[in-house]
């Protein structure tokens, strides 16, 4: 996340992504356009502390809504089938895979994504710990790993290495940074007490 003259990688990609989405992609998938309109749904929710209202096709997932409508691209789309955990966010404080969560079900909900975890410019203890402990290589799974781990620690289910491994089994890392991820969760567990 090196900054060059005020432009961040995330900011630049975010702008490009938003423009592309607005120009071409009807939310809900490629084949949506040819199908009959069955009515959009309006959802009022809080995302990272900010009240938001979205109106969308009832097929839209929370994952697509945060990435393409709200420009919060920290949440990653990996498998899009609930198998990899890259899209993990918190809904009302509980960790869920946003790819299997329909936006339409979230009226009144409070959503936290990786962008909402830090305290202003101060990284969350888990974000620091993943850097300290080399808990990543390519970084694609990292937002999901951190959101999942934050919930696991908060629930008190990170007591032993075996428990951490079991609780984190829904977050796949294809670079296999698992030893670093485990060490990072251990470090943050102590700091978050």
């Amino acid at each position: 996340m090196t900054q060059h003259e005020g432009i961040t990688r995330r900011g630049l990609l975010g702008m490009v992504g938003t423009a592309a989405a607005a120009a071409t992609v009807p939310l809900g998938g490629g084949s949506a356009a040819a199908q009959p309109d069955t009515g959009e749904v309006t959802v009022r929710m809080t995302v990272n502390g900010t009240a938001t209202s979205l109106t969308a096709d009832p097929r839209v997932t929370l994952l697509d809504a945060v990435r393409e409508r709200l420009g919060l691209t920290g949440t990653k789309k990996g498998c899009d089938r609930g198998q990899c955990g890259a899209c993990t966010v918190h809904v009302d404080g509980r960790r869920v895979v946003s790819c299997l969560t329909l936006l339409a079900t979230l009226d009144g909900a409070s959503v936290t994504t990786i962008e909402g975890l830090a305290d202003g410019d101060r990284p969350h203890p888990l974000q620091r710990a993943f850097v300290d402990q080399d808990g990543l290589q390519c970084g694609f799974c990292t937002p999901g790993q951190i959101m999942s781990a934050a919930a696991v620690i908060a629930e008190g289910r990170a007591r032993t290495d075996d428990e951490i491994r079991e609780q984190m089994s829904g977050n796949i890392c294809r670079c296999s940074a698992y030893p670093g991820i485990l060490a990072a969760i251990r470090q943050a567990r102590t700091e978050m007490r």
Binding site: T88, V96, T101, S148, A151, R157, Q167, S169
Partner: peptide
């Protein structure tokens, strides 16, 4: 069963 996220949901 499943994973932590799926058990929560």
């Amino acid at each position: 069963s499943a994973s932590g996220q799926l058990r929560t949901m």
